[in-house]
Design a protein around this nucleic acid. Sequence first.
RNA 1: GCGGACGUAGCUCAGUUGGCAGAGCACCUGGUUGUGGCCCAGGGGGUCGUGGGUUCAAUCCCCAUCGUUCGCCCCA
Length: 415
Amino acid sequence: MADLQRIKGFADLFSPESDAFSFMEGVARATFAAYGYTELRIPVMEHTELFSRGIGTETDVVQKEMYTFPDRKGRSLTLRPEATAGVMRAYIEAARHNQEPVSKFFTYGPMFRYERPQKGRMRQFHQINCECIGAAEPLADAEVILMLMTFLKGIGLTGLSLEMNSLGCRQCRPAYNNALSAYLAAINPQDLCEDCRRRLSANPLRVLDCKVPACKERTKDAPVIAEHNCPACQEHFLVVLRILQEAGLPRTLNPRLVRGLDYYTRTTFEVVSTTIGAQASVAGGGRYDGLVAQLGGPDVPGVGFACGMERLALMLGQRDAPGLDFYLAVLDAAALETAMTVAQTLRENGKRGEVSFSAKSLKSQMRQASRLKAKQCLLLGGNELASGVVAVKDMESGEQKNVPLKAVAEALGSR
RNA sequence: GCGGACGUAGCUCAGUUGGCAGAGCACCUGGUUGUGGCCCAGGGGGUCGUGGGUUCAAUCCCCAUCGUUCGCCCCA
């Protein structure tokens, strides 16, 4: 055990795990491009205030999970715990609303939250994020959800369930909050868990989301949020649902689906897996109509989602790494430099392969060739060098033939 | 922040009522003087997570600590 080790909750990803990540990034890039999204790369650190104002000071994320520390001049900086706030900051700072009516961005990269690590939950984790800013129409909500599901299907995942809810808007949420508060006031606080007692005053909505069985039982008859939404919100949600229905996308309504970040309004959704353990939610998102204004920008609406790449990777399964086209085995030290030249020529001809850096026994060379899953093993030793050829052995059939050094590229290409 | 399980070779793990630290896989070499995946033999590799304590003696028992992991909570 080395005395210098990686930080708790931070992972090193070797192949094939790293391959799974770049695979997902590639599919994401292609999928989102088809919907007119462009990539936005934003910093991993921001001023702390961006997150406290954007995510909500009462949220667990802000209260106890952020990596926050002063820089050398004493300013409070925070490693981003999510991407949306940063995307909005960039949008505002570049005054994108003056350039285009609707902006569509995707971004991916590491996020940081100080939590106890477990399966599907790292302190440094990776999210793929999409944000559609400037469109208030329900079509935007539907498109974002369709795009997310298309992406998940694109990486080969099925059997996921899509849960949806509508949280109302700035107009109707207060009325619902009052109704909920009144309902909760009738409950003896002693019957609720400690967290919920705090939520009663801070953010009553979160009480609905509590997983403690006793709390669930106490609040099972709580007013349903969707029934208190204003007509405009109800109509909005209906249109979203109708479009998804039309597209043949199955979903379940979950009246208790309340997101943990304060900025969500109207449509919210979450994609849940049943196979990856306790941390089952692989993607989540929704509409955030007041967020940009709250961060000091123009009052423009938005909708988007984030999905957790580690959790997706858990479901992805093993993917076979592609083998090499050739492995150049060097049997004689005198042939090493010639071998490098041959290998380089092959690579310039589009072949992927490795060359042995030192002369080794044929046995270990052949072992290495099969370990690398090379299609062909080229043998170069004293005899070959003397007669100006290289032996080309097909690893599949075992057939072997001598090829002049200058014609190796053609010989490999013709097969 | 809370609870459970676990830390022994590069990997997966045995182990001893406390007495010289083991196996399989992997790696290297040889059997086979230039033909792989099988077989056989040999070899390199370890402060038994770390620090204390008990003991003639601790990898083993006790305490602490760090780490890993699963769950709670939270979230993607």
